[in-house]
Each structure stands twice: as C-alpha cells, then as structure tokens.
Design a protein around this nucleic acid. Structure first.
Length: 304
DNA sequence: CGTATTTGACCTGCGC
DNA sequence: GCGCAGGTCAAATACG
C-alpha cells in the first residue's frame, strides 16, 4: 500500500513574503530592527507601511500555522494507516504461531510504538475477546521517573482515584489501578506498573476515552485552539474499528522539561514532537523566515 | 469531618 | 471442579 501517494506530507512552505512583495529588502528590515531606539530617519518606513507589513506577516504566520496543523493531521492519518497495516501483518503471523507465543510475553515493552499489542499480558487477555478491545480504547504511555520513587503516579493532567494495587506474576513491581475521578460518569481506567526491564520507567495503560474535557482545557477555554492541536493526536487519527492500541513514549519528558507545571499533553507522541522541533529548527535556520520574524517583531515594537 | 489511599477479601475468567 | 492470576470492592486508615 502506498499511502504516501494520497497524503501530502510536504510542507510547501511559502515563507518568502519579502520576495513576493519586493517592497523591503531583508537587509533593510534587519537594519530597521537593529536600529530600534534610534531616532527614525526620513528614509525609514512610515508607521502605516509597518502596520501593513505587520498585517501581512501575521497573515503569513497564520498560514504557516494552518499548514503545520494540516501536516500534523496528515501525519496522524498516515500513522493510523501504518498501524492498521502492522496490525494486519501481526494477525497473519499470529494465526501461524498462536500457540507458541503465549509463553513469551515480557521483555518487549519498549517495542515499536503502537505495535506492542502482543507483548503484554494485559493485551493478551484483550486478545481473547476482540470485541472488548474495540469497545474500550487502550493506549499506553511510558514515563521515566526516579528509580527510587516508589509512587506509581503518572502526571497526565487528569485526576485519578486509586482503587487497587496488585503484584502480578510477571512483574515484581506492584501494579496500581486507577479510575478517573469523574467516574462513574467517565469510564476511563488506568493501570500503572514499573517496567520489568527498567525500574525507572512507569508503564501506564489507559482504557477507554475521557468523556469530559481535559482539566487544563477546562480552565483555559480561550486561546488558540490551533496551537493546541499541534503535536497531539486527534481521536479520529486512530479509528476505534482499527487497532485501538496507541503506544506513547513520555520517557523524554523528564529530561527535556523539568518545569513544575505538569505536561498536560499526554497524547503527544514522540514523533510529532520531533517533527515540530525539526520544523522549528528548519524555520529558524531559514533566512527568509528570520527576516520575516525580525520584521514582525520590529513592527510590533514600533507600533507601540 | 470529608476525601483519598491502602490493603486484604472477594469475584471472575481461563486452563488443566 | 479446582487452582491460579488478574481485576475490583470495600472497610480501615491516613491526611488536610
């Protein structure tokens, strides 16, 4: 299957506003920016021109944001297709060697994202009744914590109520059972257990979907909804009729940002994060984008 | 005192 | 039917 042919993942960035308009050379904008604070010379642009420029840059910025969002959506679609494909591959191989597989569960937690369905006992039980698996959407998150930290707490922004703890056979570390604090309204459950391989990694398994907004979004109702979708996986990205397991990797969250505010974006998979970072790097390296940014900032400052 | 957490008991499903 | 293992319940306890 060639999904790339139907999904356009190219950026097609048109970040060359200055060339298009041929009004202000880049050097002049940079000069304007770095000469802030000086008395404006006669040659320098009037406030009206700058406002116009600012509007244009803002429009360009909006366009870029929309393109980025669209690309993320395309990525998610492509990813769901890939997951479906891999699931089918796995099913075909499982039918061949279903018997021998049952005794080979552990040691594979950090496998391929979104495809570790056959590597845990949880999913083994789910495998037995496919309908239940489809009914309750299962996702998984890996969170790196201090190995000495005995608390099985995964900060994902939601509020959870612990209702049980059990030591399972395949893992010496206890498994904690959580229900969403909005229960029984919200049916979501969470299981948290340390990885057998790496005690510093918590494996959180989520069952079901929250039928209420994220607590952080309940507080912040306004703001750019566009930017909120960036880096997150829309629910539609992995249809429930397809492979319902989504594996998330949050192991880098600790080292990358140690802020006191817990990262509410648990749904952010690693790859979109990298994608966004890569794009940000590309943009910052682009002289045209820098020039446009300089123009925007200088416009803003001069407008005050 | 109300709420959250702990933990042993109980329930359920599955394999033998 | 029995035993085992995972999951859930609910009384006891802790905490703010």
């Amino acid at each position: 299957m060639d999904y790339s042919s139907c999904i356009n993942t190219s950026l097609d960035l048109n970040i060359n506003p200055l060339r298009v308009h041929e009004e202000v050379p880049i050097k002049e904008i940079e000069r304007n920016f770095f000469s802030l604070g000086r008395k404006p010379s006669v040659k320098e642009k009037s406030a009206g021109d700058l406002v116009e420029e600012l509007k244009r840059v803002n429009a360009e910025n909006k366009k870029l944001t929309e393109m980025l969002t669209e690309m993320c959506e395309n990525y998610n679609t492509l990813r769901s297709h890939l997951m479906e494909y891999m699931r089918k591959e796995k099913e075909s191989s499982q039918s061949k060697k279903r018997k021998s597989e049952s005794s080979n569960n552990d040691g594979n937690l950090m496998g391929i994202n979104g495809n570790s369905e056959s590597s845990s006992t949880d999913e083994e039980s789910c495998k037995k009744s496919r309908e239940e698996t489809v009914k309750a959407k299962i996702s998984r998150a890996y969170v790196r914590t201090e190995a000495s930290d005995t608390s099985l707490i995964v900060k994902d922004g939601y509020q959870w109520r612990k209702y049980g703890q059990k030591v399972t056979r395949d893992n010496p570390s206890p498994r904690a059972y959580f229900k969403c604090s909005f229960a029984p309204t919200c049916p979501v459950k969470k299981k948290v257990q340390r990885s057998v391989d790496d005690q510093s990694i918590l494996v959180a398994t989520y069952e079901g979907e929250h039928n209420h907004p994220h607590p952080s979004q309940m507080e912040v109702t306004s703001g750019s909804s566009r930017s909120m979708t960036l880096g997150s996986v829309p629910r539609s990205a992995s249809p429930s009729s397809l492979a319902p397991t989504v594996t998330l990797d949050l192991t880098k969250s600790k080292s990358r940002n140690d802020s006191k505010i817990p990262k509410p974006k648990i749904d952010s998979p690693e790859v979109p994060q990298i994608l966004v970072e890569h794009m940000a790097t590309s943009l910052t390296k682009d002289p045209n984008f820098r020039a446009a940014l300089v123009a925007a900032i200088s416009g803003k400052m001069l407008h005050k």
